[in-house]
Amino acid sequence: MLANAAVFVGTGYLLLRTADDPVRAGLLWSVNPLLISVLVVGGHLDTLVAGLAVSAIHLARSSTRWHHDLTVGGLIGLACGVMVSAGLLGVGLAWPLLRSGAWRPADRQACAAALTLAALYGVCGTHALAPLSVASRLVSAPSLSAVFDQFGTAVLGPHATAAIVSVLGPVVMLALAWALRRRAAPDAPSIIALPFALAFAWVLAAPWSMPW
């Protein structure tokens, strides 16, 4: 919790110093009682992922040199090392670069992220990925898939339903991300709007999702 508090305060400081509207950033992050309760008091690692994500997006917005791209990729790799779902952040940051034809910055970010992640798993071992394969077939009560899971289990059986849910989850997530991106403000930078759309769609569509 102390480590989460330190990361939370550091992320809030970065947002206050760099946001176009510091007051709004402070209200939504630094003094937000919901985030303080979930990210600090909750004692989970999501605070670290959020801090790394904010840092990566901030640096990617002002990236002008090759070492900036490597740093962004390293931050993405570290975030993925904490929670693999942070890979959506890498996709959201790389997509605008690929669409604009900036292949080299995208390649540098991808290589740095992959090398960082490989180094982390080289230390921890690939057994750290075991919970991921298990969770891909689980459905939590607060998720949107809970009703389908209960109905499908009764009609098709648990194994068939789990297989369908694991396939439909990413499809629903991408559909929601597309809808959210279209609803974003026209002047919203893609480097911010795309990671937000993907992350928020994942929160809504992921079959196995905890309140934090």
Rank of each mutant, 00 (worst) to 15 (best):
V9E: 08
G10K: 05
L14K: 05
L14I: 10
A19T: 02
N32S: 08
S37Q: 10
V49R: 00
G51R: 01
S55V: 03
R61I: 14
S62N: 14
S63V: 01
S63A: 12
R65F: 04
R65D: 13
W66N: 14
H67C: 11
L75A: 01
G77Y: 04
A79V: 03
A79S: 09
V82R: 03
L89Q: 11
V91T: 08
V91Q: 01
W95F: 07
A102F: 04
A102Y: 03
D107W: 10
A110W: 02
H127W: 13
H127S: 07
P131W: 00
S140I: 00
L144E: 05
A154D: 10
V155G: 06
G169E: 14
G169H: 03
V171C: 05
A175Y: 00
L176K: 07
L176G: 06
L176I: 11
W178C: 07
A179T: 12
R182E: 11
A184Y: 08
D187L: 03
A188G: 04
I192S: 10
A193Y: 10
A193G: 03
L194D: 11
L194Y: 13
L198N: 01
F200K: 09
V203I: 14
P207K: 10
M210W: 15
P211V: 09
P211A: 13
W212P: 03
W212Y: 12
